[in-house]
Protein backbone atom coordinates (compact mmCIF):
# COMPACT_ATOMS: atom_id res chain seq x y z
CA UNK A 1 0.00 0.00 0.00
CA UNK A 2 1.25 3.44 -0.92
CA UNK A 3 1.94 5.97 1.85
CA UNK A 4 1.83 9.67 1.07
CA UNK A 5 4.19 11.74 3.24
CA UNK A 6 4.17 15.54 3.18
CA UNK A 7 7.24 17.50 4.23
CA UNK A 8 5.89 20.82 5.47
CA UNK A 9 6.69 23.72 7.81
CA UNK A 10 4.78 26.91 7.12
CA UNK A 11 7.93 28.99 7.24
CA UNK A 12 10.37 29.10 4.35
CA UNK A 13 14.06 28.30 4.46
CA UNK A 14 13.86 25.79 7.30
CA UNK A 15 14.98 22.80 5.23
CA UNK A 16 11.88 21.30 3.63
CA UNK A 17 13.46 20.63 0.25
CA UNK A 18 16.73 19.44 1.79
CA UNK A 19 14.68 17.09 3.96
CA UNK A 20 12.41 15.92 1.12
CA UNK A 21 15.45 15.09 -1.02
CA UNK A 22 17.35 13.32 1.77
CA UNK A 23 14.32 11.51 3.15
CA UNK A 24 13.06 10.30 -0.24
CA UNK A 25 16.60 9.15 -1.11
CA UNK A 26 16.84 7.36 2.25
CA UNK A 27 13.60 5.48 1.61
CA UNK A 28 14.85 4.48 -1.86
CA UNK A 29 18.19 3.34 -0.39
CA UNK A 30 16.19 1.05 1.89
CA UNK A 31 14.64 -0.53 -1.19
CA UNK A 32 11.30 1.28 -1.33
CA UNK A 33 10.02 2.53 -4.67
CA UNK A 34 9.69 6.23 -3.98
CA UNK A 35 8.47 9.33 -5.82
CA UNK A 36 9.24 12.83 -4.62
CA UNK A 37 6.97 15.61 -5.89
CA UNK A 38 7.78 19.32 -5.88
CA UNK A 39 4.61 21.28 -5.02
CA UNK A 40 6.30 24.67 -5.19
CA UNK A 41 4.72 25.78 -8.47
CA UNK A 42 6.49 28.84 -9.84
CA UNK A 43 9.57 28.40 -7.66
CA UNK A 44 10.76 24.89 -8.33
CA UNK A 45 13.99 23.90 -6.62
CA UNK A 46 13.77 20.24 -5.77
CA UNK A 47 15.21 19.46 -9.21
CA UNK A 48 18.36 21.46 -8.32
CA UNK A 49 18.72 19.80 -4.91
CA UNK A 50 18.29 16.37 -6.53
CA UNK A 51 20.72 17.32 -9.32
CA UNK A 52 18.31 16.60 -12.17
CA UNK A 53 17.53 20.16 -13.32
CA UNK A 54 18.90 19.59 -16.82
CA UNK A 55 16.69 16.59 -17.40
CA UNK A 56 13.38 18.35 -16.76
CA UNK A 57 11.24 18.18 -19.90
CA UNK A 58 7.71 17.90 -18.54
CA UNK A 59 6.44 18.81 -15.10
CA UNK A 60 3.64 18.23 -12.57
CA UNK A 61 1.31 20.80 -14.17
CA UNK A 62 1.88 19.37 -17.67
CA UNK A 63 0.70 16.01 -16.32
CA UNK A 64 -2.32 17.55 -14.58
CA UNK A 65 -3.29 19.37 -17.78
CA UNK A 66 -2.89 16.20 -19.86
CA UNK A 67 -0.02 17.69 -21.88
CA UNK A 68 2.28 14.84 -20.88
CA UNK A 69 2.01 11.33 -19.50
CA UNK A 70 3.11 10.82 -15.89
CA UNK A 71 5.98 8.53 -16.88
CA UNK A 72 7.23 11.15 -19.34
CA UNK A 73 7.48 13.68 -16.53
CA UNK A 74 8.99 11.42 -13.86
CA UNK A 75 12.78 11.74 -13.74
CA UNK A 76 14.77 8.74 -12.61
CA UNK A 77 17.22 9.69 -9.87
CA UNK A 78 20.90 9.31 -10.69
CA UNK A 79 21.88 7.96 -7.25
CA UNK A 80 19.08 5.55 -6.41
CA UNK A 81 17.50 2.84 -8.50
CA UNK A 82 13.99 3.17 -6.99
CA UNK A 83 13.66 6.93 -6.84
CA UNK A 84 11.77 9.25 -9.19
CA UNK A 85 11.39 13.03 -9.14
CA UNK A 86 8.31 14.89 -10.35
CA UNK A 87 9.38 18.51 -10.81
CA UNK A 88 7.13 21.52 -10.24
CA UNK A 89 6.10 23.78 -13.06
CA UNK A 90 7.60 27.25 -13.43
CA UNK A 91 4.24 28.70 -14.42
CA UNK A 92 3.06 31.80 -12.60
CA UNK A 93 -0.53 30.59 -12.68
CA UNK A 94 -1.39 30.07 -9.02
CA UNK A 95 -4.40 27.92 -9.81
CA UNK A 96 -2.43 25.40 -11.85
CA UNK A 97 -2.67 22.79 -9.07
CA UNK A 98 -6.20 21.49 -8.81
CA UNK A 99 -7.30 19.03 -6.16
CA UNK A 100 -8.64 16.67 -8.82
CA UNK A 101 -5.40 16.92 -10.77
CA UNK A 102 -3.22 16.21 -7.73
CA UNK A 103 -5.44 13.30 -6.75
CA UNK A 104 -5.25 11.81 -10.25
CA UNK A 105 -1.44 11.93 -10.19
CA UNK A 106 -1.26 10.38 -6.71
CA UNK A 107 -3.67 7.58 -7.66
CA UNK A 108 -1.66 6.87 -10.80
CA UNK A 109 1.56 6.65 -8.78
CA UNK A 110 -0.22 4.17 -6.51
CA UNK A 111 -1.16 2.06 -9.53
CA UNK A 112 2.48 2.17 -10.67
CA UNK A 113 3.40 0.40 -7.44
CA UNK A 114 5.13 3.19 -5.56
CA UNK A 115 5.63 2.45 -1.86
CA UNK A 116 6.08 6.08 -0.84
CA UNK A 117 5.12 9.43 -2.31
CA UNK A 118 7.00 12.31 -0.68
CA UNK A 119 5.35 15.71 -1.18
CA UNK A 120 7.74 18.65 -0.86
CA UNK A 121 5.51 21.51 0.26
CA UNK A 122 6.14 25.16 -0.57
CA UNK A 123 6.33 27.67 2.28
CA UNK A 124 3.23 29.55 3.34
CA UNK A 125 -0.37 28.43 3.77
CA UNK A 126 -1.58 29.10 0.24
CA UNK A 127 -2.84 26.68 -2.36
CA UNK A 128 0.44 24.86 -3.04
CA UNK A 129 1.03 24.15 0.64
CA UNK A 130 -2.56 23.02 1.15
CA UNK A 131 -2.45 20.78 -1.96
CA UNK A 132 0.79 19.20 -0.72
CA UNK A 133 -0.82 18.13 2.55
CA UNK A 134 -4.33 17.33 1.29
CA UNK A 135 -3.67 13.67 0.47
CA UNK A 136 -1.09 13.00 3.17
CA UNK A 137 -1.11 9.91 5.37
CA UNK A 138 1.85 11.18 7.37
CA UNK A 139 3.48 14.59 7.81
CA UNK A 140 7.03 15.57 8.63
CA UNK A 141 6.84 19.02 10.18
CA UNK A 142 10.24 20.58 9.67
CA UNK A 143 11.04 23.17 12.33
CA UNK A 144 14.04 25.30 13.23
CA UNK A 145 14.59 25.97 16.94
CA UNK A 146 13.56 29.58 16.49
CA UNK A 147 10.38 31.53 17.34
CA UNK A 148 8.93 32.24 13.90
CA UNK A 149 9.51 28.70 12.68
CA UNK A 150 7.90 27.15 15.77
CA UNK A 151 4.86 29.38 15.52
CA UNK A 152 4.43 28.69 11.80
CA UNK A 153 4.78 24.95 12.40
CA UNK A 154 2.01 25.18 14.95
CA UNK A 155 -0.11 26.96 12.38
CA UNK A 156 0.53 24.35 9.69
CA UNK A 157 -0.34 21.58 12.19
CA UNK A 158 -3.72 23.26 12.59
CA UNK A 159 -4.20 23.30 8.82
CA UNK A 160 -3.17 19.65 8.62
CA UNK A 161 -5.80 18.80 11.23
CA UNK A 162 -8.54 20.66 9.37
CA UNK A 163 -7.81 20.63 5.64
CA UNK A 164 -6.31 17.20 4.95
CA UNK A 165 -8.58 14.62 3.31
CA UNK A 166 -8.18 12.40 6.34
CA UNK A 167 -9.51 15.16 8.57
CA UNK A 168 -12.27 16.21 6.16
CA UNK A 169 -13.49 12.62 5.79
CA UNK A 170 -13.25 11.89 9.51
CA UNK A 171 -10.72 9.11 9.01
CA UNK A 172 -7.77 8.36 11.28
CA UNK A 173 -5.83 11.66 11.43
CA UNK A 174 -2.60 12.32 9.55
CA UNK A 175 0.33 10.85 11.52
CA UNK A 176 2.49 13.79 12.53
CA UNK A 177 6.27 13.76 13.01
CA UNK A 178 8.47 16.58 14.23
CA UNK A 179 11.85 17.08 12.61
CA UNK A 180 14.04 19.74 14.21
CA UNK A 181 16.58 21.02 11.70
CA UNK A 182 19.56 23.40 11.77
CA UNK A 183 20.18 22.43 15.38
CA UNK A 184 23.22 23.74 17.22
CA UNK A 185 23.91 21.79 20.44
CA UNK A 186 26.47 24.41 21.48
CA UNK A 187 24.00 27.28 21.28
CA UNK A 188 21.37 25.20 23.08
CA UNK A 189 23.89 24.46 25.84
CA UNK A 190 24.60 28.16 26.16
CA UNK A 191 20.93 29.04 26.45
CA UNK A 192 20.83 30.84 23.13
CA UNK A 193 18.69 28.36 21.25
CA UNK A 194 15.50 26.43 22.03
CA UNK A 195 16.29 22.78 22.71
CA UNK A 196 14.59 20.02 20.73
CA UNK A 197 12.74 19.18 23.94
CA UNK A 198 11.42 22.75 24.15
CA UNK A 199 10.23 22.59 20.54
CA UNK A 200 8.59 19.25 21.10
CA UNK A 201 6.91 20.47 24.28
CA UNK A 202 5.56 23.51 22.44
CA UNK A 203 4.26 21.65 19.39
CA UNK A 204 3.29 18.36 21.09
CA UNK A 205 4.21 16.19 18.13
CA UNK A 206 6.35 13.02 18.40
CA UNK A 207 9.98 13.69 17.55
CA UNK A 208 11.28 11.96 14.41
CA UNK A 209 14.78 13.37 14.61
CA UNK A 210 17.17 16.26 14.96
CA UNK A 211 19.38 17.39 12.07
CA UNK A 212 22.42 19.39 13.17
CA UNK A 213 23.32 22.72 11.57
CA UNK A 214 26.10 21.85 9.16
CA UNK A 215 28.22 23.15 6.35
CA UNK A 216 27.61 19.87 4.55
CA UNK A 217 24.10 20.94 3.54
CA UNK A 218 25.51 23.72 1.36
CA UNK A 219 28.08 21.34 -0.13
CA UNK A 220 25.23 18.95 -0.92
CA UNK A 221 23.07 21.57 -2.63
CA UNK A 222 26.06 23.02 -4.51
CA UNK A 223 26.57 19.62 -6.12
CA UNK A 224 22.95 18.60 -6.50
CA UNK A 225 23.49 15.59 -4.28
CA UNK A 226 20.92 14.91 -1.53
CA UNK A 227 22.65 15.35 1.85
CA UNK A 228 22.05 11.75 2.89
CA UNK A 229 24.66 10.65 0.30
CA UNK A 230 27.53 12.68 1.88
CA UNK A 231 29.06 9.67 3.59
CA UNK A 232 30.50 10.22 7.03
CA UNK A 233 28.91 13.62 7.65
CA UNK A 234 26.70 14.25 10.70
CA UNK A 235 23.84 15.36 8.48
CA UNK A 236 23.90 12.17 6.38
CA UNK A 237 24.01 10.05 9.53
CA UNK A 238 21.18 12.03 11.14
CA UNK A 239 18.97 11.64 8.04
CA UNK A 240 19.75 7.92 7.90
CA UNK A 241 18.53 7.65 11.51
CA UNK A 242 15.40 9.64 10.63
CA UNK A 243 14.52 7.20 7.84
CA UNK A 244 15.13 4.23 10.16
CA UNK A 245 12.90 5.70 12.87
CA UNK A 246 10.23 6.49 10.29
CA UNK A 247 10.29 2.80 9.33
CA UNK A 248 9.73 1.90 12.98
CA UNK A 249 13.28 1.11 14.08
CA UNK A 250 14.72 2.27 17.39
CA UNK A 251 17.59 4.72 16.97
CA UNK A 252 19.07 6.82 19.78
CA UNK A 253 19.29 10.56 19.08
CA UNK A 254 22.74 11.61 17.92
CA UNK A 255 24.41 15.00 17.40
CA UNK A 256 22.32 16.68 20.10
CA UNK A 257 24.91 16.87 22.89
CA UNK A 258 27.60 19.48 23.12
CA UNK A 259 30.99 18.47 24.44
CA UNK A 260 32.02 21.04 26.98
CA UNK A 261 35.44 22.64 26.63
CA UNK A 262 38.01 22.21 29.38
CA UNK A 263 38.33 24.06 32.69
CA UNK A 264 40.63 26.75 31.28
CA UNK A 265 38.12 27.75 28.66
CA UNK A 266 35.30 27.74 31.19
CA UNK A 267 37.19 30.00 33.63
CA UNK A 268 38.13 32.65 31.15
CA UNK A 269 35.42 32.30 28.53
CA UNK A 270 36.49 30.74 25.31
CA UNK A 271 34.59 32.71 22.72
Amino acid sequence: MTRVVVVTSGKGGVGKTTTSAAFASGLALRGFKTAVIDFDVGLRNLDLIMGCERRVVYDFVNVINGEAKLNQALIKDKHCENLFVLPASQTRDKDALTEEGVETVIRELEHMGFDYIVCDSPAGIERGAVMALTFADEAIVTTNPEVSSVRDSDRILGILQSKSKRAAEGREPVKEHLLVTRYSPKRVEEGEMLSYKDVQELLRVPLLGVIPESESVLHASNQGTPAIHLKGTDVAEAYTDVVARFLGEERALRFVAYEKPGLFKRLFGGN
Binding site: V150, G158, E190, E192, L194
Partner: peptide, 19 residues
Protein backbone atom coordinates in the same frame (compact mmCIF):
# COMPACT_ATOMS: atom_id res chain seq x y z
CA UNK B 1 17.86 35.61 31.55
CA UNK B 2 18.89 33.38 28.69
CA UNK B 3 17.24 34.32 25.40
CA UNK B 4 16.15 30.72 24.67
CA UNK B 5 14.08 30.76 27.87
CA UNK B 6 12.50 34.05 26.81
CA UNK B 7 11.70 32.53 23.40
CA UNK B 8 10.02 29.54 25.01
CA UNK B 9 7.85 31.68 27.28
CA UNK B 10 6.77 33.91 24.41
CA UNK B 11 5.92 30.91 22.25
CA UNK B 12 3.91 29.24 25.01
CA UNK B 13 1.77 32.34 25.32
CA UNK B 14 1.26 33.01 21.64
CA UNK B 15 0.52 29.39 20.77
CA UNK B 16 -2.01 29.11 23.59
CA UNK B 17 -3.66 32.31 22.44
CA UNK B 18 -3.80 31.27 18.80
CA UNK B 19 -5.35 27.94 19.72
Amino acid sequence: KKTAAVAKERLQLIIAREH
